[in-house]
C-alpha cells in the first residue's frame, strides 16, 4: 500500500490539471470572444461565403450576391458549397479557419448541427453572419438576416383558402426537417388552413427542398391519393417537381400548386397559370445586408441585432408583373 501511494501521485496530478484546465475561462465564452479579424488586417481582406447548396438557383443567387457585394466592398471572396451535407460544411469551416479568413457569410445546412461550426469560427476570432437560414443559438453568430417565413406562409395560407375553398384534400411537401425555415413555413401555413376543418391534409412528407425528390414523393403519394385538390410545397424547387409529377399524371390543370421562394422559373409559372402562387423572398437583400454587416464589423462596429427579419411578399397571378429576377422589378 505504501509503495502504491506514490505511484498514484502522477495520476492525481493529471486529474487536478484536467480540472484546472476545464475551469479556466474559455475563448468561446461570449466575454472572451474577440475580433481577431479586426486585429489582423491581412486576414480581414478575405471573406468566405459558405452556402448550403448550389444545386438550387435560389441559393446560387444568394451566394453569388453575397460574394459580389463583398468584392464591391473590397474583399477577396470565395464561395464554399456544402452540398446539403453537414460534414462538408464542417470541413469548409476547418479550411477557412486554418486559412485565416476575416469573416464568414453563412447559409447553414442544419439549424442545430451547424452551431458548433459557428462557435469554432468565433473561437478563432472569425465572425459569422447568417443569411436566410437560422441557427438556433443567440450567442454564436454575429448576426442573422432571415426571411419572415411565418408571415409569408400566413399570407399564402389565406390565398390557398381563397383559391381551393374551405373544403378539399391537399398534400404538404416539407423541406429539410432540420431547417427552422421548414417549420416556420409549415406552421404559418397551418395557422390558417387548420382553421378550416373541411380542408384535409392527406399526406405530409419531406422532399428536402429538392425538385427531383418532390417529383418522386408526389408520384408516390398520388398512387394512394388520386383525388387531391392542392399541393403546398415548402419551396419553389419542390413546387416545380410537384408540378412535373402532376403533369405526368394528367392532373396539372386540376390540382393547384403553391410554392415559396420567388424563384424565377416559378414566378414565370405563376404568370402562365401553372403554379397558383409563391412567396417572394429577397435573397439579394439578405446577402447584401450580411456582406455589409461583415464589412462594418471588420471596420470596427461590434454590436449588431442578433436576428433581423426581412419582409416577404405573396406573388399571385394578379400581381406577378411586379416581380422578377429574385425580387421586385425596379
Amino acid at each position: 500500500m505504501k509503495q502504491s501511494l506514490p505511484r498514484l501521485f502522477p495520476l492525481t496530478g493529471l486529474l487536478v490539471s484536467l480540472l484546472f484546465a476545464a475551469c479556466k475561462p474559455s475563448a468561446s465564452t461570449p466575454s472572451a470572444a474577440s475580433g481577431a479579424a479586426a486585429n489582423n488586417p491581412a486576414k480581414s481582406k478575405r471573406v468566405a461565403v459558405v452556402v448550403s447548396t448550389l444545386n438550387n438557383p435560389w441559393f446560387v443567387v444568394l451566394a453569388e450576391t453575397a460574394r459580389d457585394r463583398a468584392k464591391e466592398l473590397g474583399y477577396d471572396a470565395t464561395i464554399f458549397d456544402s452540398q446539403n451535407d453537414p460534414s462538408k460544411e464542417s470541413t469548409h469551416f476547418d479550411n477557412l479557419i486554418s486559412s485565416g479568413y476575416g469573416a464568414v457569410l453563412f447559409n447553414c445546412t442544419d439549424a442545430e448541427g451547424s452551431i458548433a461550426n459557428v462557435r469554432r469560427a468565433k473561437t478563432a476570432g472569425i465572425p459569422v453572419f447568417c443569411m436566410d437560414r437560422e441557427i438556433k443559438a443567440n450567442d454564436a453568430a454575429m448576426s442573422q438576416i432571415l426571411s419572415d417565413n411565418y408571415s409569408g406562409c400566413v399570407a399564402l395560407g389565406q390565398y390557398f383558402v381563397e383559391q381551393v375553398g374551405e373544403t378539399g384534400k391537399y398534400v404538404e411537401l416539407l423541406g429539410i426537417v432540420a431547417d427552422t425555415n421548414t417549420w416556420n413555413r409549415s406552421k404559418g401555413f397551418h395557422s390558417v388552413v387548420d382553421r378550416y376543418p373541411g380542408l384535409k391534409m392527406v399526406a405530409q412528407q419531406s422532399a428536402e427542398f429538392d425538385r427531383s425528390k418532390a417529383l418522386e414523393v408526389l408520384e408516390s403519394i398520388l398512387q394512394a391519393n388520386a383525388d387531391i385538390d392542392a399541393v403546398f410545397c415548402g419551396n419553389d424547387a419542390m413546387a416545380m417537381g410537384a408540378y412535373q409529377a402532376l403533369l405526368a399524371a394528367g392532373k396539372a390543370s386540376k390540382v393547384k400548386v403553391f410554392g415559396f421562394d420567388g424563384a424565377d422559373d416559378v414566378v414565370k409559372a405563376v404568370a402562365e397559370g401553372k403554379i397558383a402562387a409563391t412567396v417572394m423572398q429577397f435573397p439579394k437583400t439578405m446577402a447584401r445586408t450580411a456582406a455589409e454587416n461583415a464589412d462594418k464589423f471588420i471596420k470596427g462596429q461590434k454590436e449588431f441585432p442578433q436576428r433581423t427579419p426581412v419582409a416577404v411578399e405573396l406573388v399571385t397571378r394578379a400581381n406577378v408583373g411586379k416581380f422578377g429576377d429574385y425580387g421586385r422589378k425596379q
Binding site: K136, L146, T180, N184, P305, R307
Partner: peptide, 8 residues
Amino acid sequence: VNAFPGLQ
C-alpha cells in the same frame, strides 16, 4: 425579436 430564443 432579439429578446426571444428564436423565430419559432
